[in-house]
Design a protein around this nucleic acid. Structure first.
Lengths: 229, 229
DNA sequence: GCTGACACTGACACTGACGTCAGTGGCCGA
DNA sequence: TCGGCCACTGACGTCAGTGTCAGTGTCAGC
C-alpha cells in the first residue's frame, strides 16, 4: 500500500480550482473518453494514469474516485463496446417470410461493420491493446468472442440442416468467418475508412462467404476428400 | 542510468557457481528458449527480466550481455518466427505443368499451418503478445503482415487475370484470407491441436476459399451489385 | 451565517523493475 | 606456475509510476 502517510503534509498550493460541479456519471464519461483517446494514441501499455488524468483535465485522486486502476477503465471501455457489437447481431430466423436468410446475414455483417467503423478508436483498442493485458482480461475477451462464435456456430448448424450452409465443421467455419471479419475491420479502421464504406465491405465479405474466390478445377486438387473431419 | 555505483559493494555471496563454459550462440539460444516459455505462460507484459533470467538459469547480468532489454528478446523471437513463415510460402507459378495452381495454394496453406502448429508457443506469442508492445514493434509486425498480404494480393490479381480467382478487390480478398487463417491458427493452437491436424485444417480452409459456405439464392439478396468497388 | 457532506486536489511515501559494474573463478597460453 | 582474459554473477542505486489521504472549496439545508 503505497502512499501511506507518515509525516505532516506540506500545505497544498493555493489557487485551488475546484472544477465546476458535474454529475457523477458525466465525470465518469469524461475520464473514459480521455482514456480512450490516450489509449489509441499511445497504446494501452505505454499509457500511464497521469496521461489519462492530464487528458481528462482532472486530478490524480479524482481518477481513483471513479476507477480502481488502469485496467478498470479499459475493462469498462471494452465492456461497453462488446455490448454494442453483441446488440448489433440479430439471431437469424427461417420462419420469417419477409426477410430472407441472405438479407439477415447481410444485415448482421452490415451492423457489425457499422458499429466498428463508427467507433474506430474502440475497434483499434480492441484489436491492438485488449489482447495481452493479463490473464483475467484475456478470459473476458475470450468469453466475448466465444459468445459470438457460439451463436454463429449454431446458426451454421441450422443452416446446414436446411441446406443453406455448405459442408464443413461448423465451428471451424465460424472461426474462419470471424477471423476474416476481424482482419477486414482492423485494416479498414487502420486505413481510416469511415461508415460510408460499410456497404462496400459488407458486399465483399458477403460474396466471399457465399462463393469464396478460388476457381480451380476440382480434379486438380489431390485426394479431394470433401467429407473429411 | 540506474545502478550508478557510489558506495563500496558488499562482497558477493560465496559459493559462486560459474556455469560450464558454453558457446556464445548456445547461451543465446538458452535465453531465447527460456524467454519464449515464460512469455507463453505469463504473457509478455507480465514477464520481468528476472522471470526470464530465472527460467534460463543465468544471472541478471548475463542477460544484458546478450540482449539490450526485454523487447530485444521478443524482437529476436518474432523475427525468427516470421522468417520461418515467410520461407514456408512459395510464390505461385502458372507455367509449371506438374503442380497445378490448386495444389500450390494447398501446399502454401499446409506449410504455414504446419509451421504454426510446430511452433505453437511462438504462434500464441505472435497473436497475443506481439500486438500492442509499442509503436516500433507495431511497425515491425505491420511490415511482416504487409509483405504477406502484398504477395497474396499480387497472386490474386494474377489469378483474376487468368480466371482462377473470382471477382472482388484483390487486397480485400487478401485481408479476408489472412484473417481467416490467423483466427484458425490462433484457435487451433489455443485448443492444443498439433501438427497431425494440419491436413484437416488445410482442407477446411481450402474449401472455404474455393466455395465459401453460404448457399442462399442470389435473387434473395437485395440489389446484387457484384461489380461494386 | 453556519454547518456538515462531499467532490476534488496534488504532494507524498512507497515499490517493483531496471540496468550497472565491481568482483569471481575457470581456462589458456606463456 | 602464473597472469591475464573473459564469461559470468548478483547486490546495488535509481526512478517512473502507483495509490493514498490530509486538506480545500462549494453547496444544500437549516
Amino acid at each position: 500500500m503505497p502512499g501511506r502517510r507518515a509525516t505532516v503534509r506540506k500545505k497544498p498550493n493555493k489557487e485551488i480550482r475546484t472544477g465546476a460541479v458535474i454529475p457523477k456519471e458525466e465525470r465518469r464519461q469524461q475520464i473514459l473518453k480521455a482514456a480512450r483517446d490516450v489509449f489509441v494514441k499511445r497504446g494501452y501499455h505505454q499509457t500511464t494514469i497521469d496521461d489519462i488524468v492530464a487528458a481528462a483535465g482532472v486530478a490524480r485522486g479524482t481518477y481513483y474516485l471513479y476507477f480502481e486502476d488502469k485496467r478498470a477503465v479499459l475493462a469498462d471501455l471494452i465492456d461497453r463496446f462488446a455490448a454494442q457489437i453483441t446488440m448489433a447481431i440479430q439471431r437469424i430466423t427461417t420462419d420469417e417470410v419477409e426477410r430472407s436468410v441472405g438479407m439477415q446475414v447481410r444485415e448482421n455483417i452490415r451492423a457489425v461493420i457499422g458499429v466498428c467503423l463508427k467507433e474506430r478508436s474502440m475497434t483499434k483498442i480492441l484489436f491492438t491493446d485488449a489482447t495481452g493485458v493479463d490473464s483475467d482480461f484475456h478470459r473476458k475477451l475470450s468469453t466475448f468472442y466465444d459468445s459470438v462464435v457460439q451463436l454463429l456456430t449454431e446458426s451454421l448448424k441450422d443452416g446446414q440442416a436446411l441446406g443453406i450452409v455448405g459442408e464443413g465443421e461448423p465451428r471451424v467455419l465460424a472461426y474462419l468467418t470471424v477471423g476474416a471479419l476481424k482482419e477486414l475491420l482492423y485494416q479498414a479502421v487502420g486505413m481510416g475508412l469511415t461508415e460510408e464504406t460499410t456497404e462496400v465491405l459488407t458486399q465483399q465479405l458477403f460474396v466471399f462467404l457465399s462463393e469464396g474466390y478460388l476457381r480451380v478445377k476440382p480434379d486438380q486438387a489431390p485426394q479431394r476428400r470433401r467429407r473429411s473431419r
